[in-house]
Write a protein that binds this DNA or RNA. Structure first.
Lengths: 218, 218
DNA sequence: GCAAATTAATGATTTATTCAAG
DNA sequence: CTTGAATAAATCATTAATTTGC
């Protein structure tokens, strides 16, 4: 692991942990004094020099930034594609996603089959604090209207909501409920295409999966 | 297993298997579209809703991280009974880094026990490319003299250099070395205290670690 | 063997933090 | 600097595993 004649620093797990903890705690670019003290502190757990600490923070900061950038640029692009290049089970799963099940969906009324007591509990909770209204963005890139849609939990149900405001004269109401929502309309199901990978389907050439999604609007 | 009137989702073994496979395959935080599709797929094996899938990935990711952290921390505890700073304690540690320690500094002679060959290697490297001679500003705000100090790598060692010129009649020489430095004086060691982590260290009493830091001055 | 009691896992919620847009 | 979206962390709550006494 860390041979005596090794030419480069091999941090021990403890050292890495402490360094990461320091980084998370706010030290991004330690100054000279901090480096000296960190070095002395970490030398308790193994051979280490100041330059190692210095370089570690340099590299770590750079790589965190890099990770963040890549996340921002690629996450939404790649993550919604349900694939992983070197996993055969998953590829077969994707195939199964592509074919039969999703083509048999037809529109149905919002079921809401929860016992009334459950709904009331949720309403009470939501009245106390709005946190139940969890919302997140829906980001299939090929459909701008879907890009702006949301998924939202409401009374134990999860609803996908699409902003159709551009077809209305007045701006649409905000896409969240407070305690009791207005009556809902469930739109007809529409196809959503998601890209998947099969052997040669790299991010450039997506294979289309056709599925259908129920929309609910206030 | 999953009673009809059950209040919470009881995943079937197939559902868990598929979810784990997806997680291993790279899906850590599925978006709305992915959740919808996964839900439809898994509903073949039993009752399931989108929120179940959403929560499953949230919890699984969090608990995988937790498992890793606990594993590492246990390693640390068993090996060295060391501390693992949480943020609160670590901020105190940072405070101790900042100012008061520097008020106890005094001199002692520099050991500088590096083998000659090591110094020559570094000199050769530095001759080829100057990158190793990294210098940066030292920015502890409470001490103007330390503000102007530098850290510099010299012969594999990192030195802190404080400008003491204001006690001299002539302006001090620039705070960096070329190939051979003048004799050095290293400041006396001083204690730095840090404390322990909340979660992983709860069984053992908080173990204060006292370490010492050496400063080297020209 | 078998349940009551206890503990461990894990689903579901709530709170805090982070990042970036306005 | 403030704020909203996203999500990580912490916590609560229920189910499953298991221990234990009979």
């Amino acid at each position: 692991m860390s041979p005596a004649g090794s030419t480069r620093w091999c941090p021990t797990p403890e050292q890495v942990m402490i360094l990461e903890e320091m980084y998370r705690s706010g030290i991004k670019t330690p100054n000279a004094s901090q480096i000296q003290q960190i070095t002395s502190h970490l030398s308790f757990y193994g051979k280490i020099e100041g330059k190692n600490v210095f370089y570690w923070f340099q590299n770590h900061k750079a790589r965190e930034r890099q990770k963040l950038r890549r996340k921002l640029s690629k996450q939404l692009q790649l993550q919604h594609q349900l694939y992983h290049p070197n996993n055969h089970h998953f590829l077969r799963y994707l195939d199964s996603l592509a074919s039969p099940a999703f083509q048999h969906l037809s529109y149905y009324n919002s079921p809401s089959p929860f016992p009334q007591i459950r709904v009331d509990e949720d309403a009470a909770k939501a009245a106390k604090q709005q946190v139940m209204n969890y919302t997140w963005k829906f980001d299939v890139p090929e459909r701008p209207d879907i890009d702006k849609s949301m998924m939202k939990m409401y009374g134990g149900d999860w609803l996908m909501m699409v902003d159709l405001g551009h077809s209305l004269s007045s701006p649409p109401p905000p896409c969240y409920f407070t305690t009791r929502p207005p009556p809902l309309k469930t739109l007809q199901l529409f196809p959503v295409t998601a890209s998947s990978l099969k052997e040669e389907c790299n991010n450039s050439s997506p294979c289309n999966i056709t599925t259908k999604v129920a929309l609910t609007l206030p």
